[in-house]
Design a protein around this nucleic acid. Structure first.
Lengths: 144, 144
DNA sequence: TATTGTTATACTCTATAACTATA
DNA sequence: TATAGTTATAGAGTATAACAATA
């Protein structure tokens, strides 16, 4: 029998480390939810919505990797609090466009400010390493 | 008025990119859950448990950033399926140790194999870049 | 016929509070 | 008194299926 220590590709190990880093910040995300009185799905939805570009409900469902029927409930709660509004689409009357209200825009700004604070492990890297990490991730995600 | 484009530190931008990369893989994680017939919390719990080292329920609650009462339900379902077992701790009879069964160990192996597959954005980097990314993350997470 | 969003239903996750057993 | 885990309860996320309005 071969030993259980299998060869791991750099990409696979990088991915695991990266997922662990994000998972380790889950508690912090829940704190943001709690402080701003938003359930996790509501926070993700408001964070994803672009205040300058209304989006159909279906696009949000796709971004959140969940079903349309779920988005109905999430938006119900955000709309009750006056953070977003449903508006009929002009081009297709089946579609409802989601618009972020001024109040939603302000809350979204606070969400982003809190979520963008880098976690402690990244702050342990020196400035050059932080830039190198940023550049590698930019390159990976740029679609090039 | 200053323009809205604020200066962003490399660490903050790296963190956002990194979080986006993980968030973009949520759909894949849900697929693993669906394929293996595990709810997300059950998957995370089984993935966290070390088959070689029984752990108290409370430690799992801490790792999952959730309440003890929640872990009770998650473990109930895993135990019903014969994937883990509760065992009284010898040193403190209030504590229950979680033991992964052989069947749980096999399912856990499949979870990890699926979850460790690197996502497409990382595969676009060349081998040297993948190694550089891995090394930066190792350094950040090593606690050094 | 196919699609967008809603409703109804059921299961799971989540926290809070009250509880049991133990320390 | 304090702690580990359970139970009861309630709010929220999740998918499936059936539905209405529209394309």
């Amino acid at each position: 029998m071969a030993p259980t220590t299998t060869e791991r590709s750099p990409a696979s190990e990088a991915w695991s480390l990266l997922a662990d880093l994000v998972a380790g910040q889950r508690g912090r995300m829940m704190c943001v939810c709690s402080d701003l009185e938003l359930a996790p799905g509501q926070l993700m939805a408001l964070k994803w919505l672009d205040p300058d570009t209304p989006a159909p409900m279906g696009d949000l469902a796709h971004a959140l990797s969940c079903d349309n029927s779920n988005v109905t409930g999430i938006i119900d709660r955000l709309e009750e609090r006056g953070l977003v509004q449903r508006r009929p689409a002009t081009h297709d009357r089946r579609v409802k466009m989601l618009v972020v209200t001024p109040r939603g825009r302000e809350l979204r700004r606070r969400i982003k400010a809190r979520m963008e604070e880098p976690p402690e492990p990244l702050l342990r890297l020196d400035e050059g390493e932080q830039r190198a990490l940023r550049d590698l991730l930019r390159k990976a995600l740029d679609g090039g």
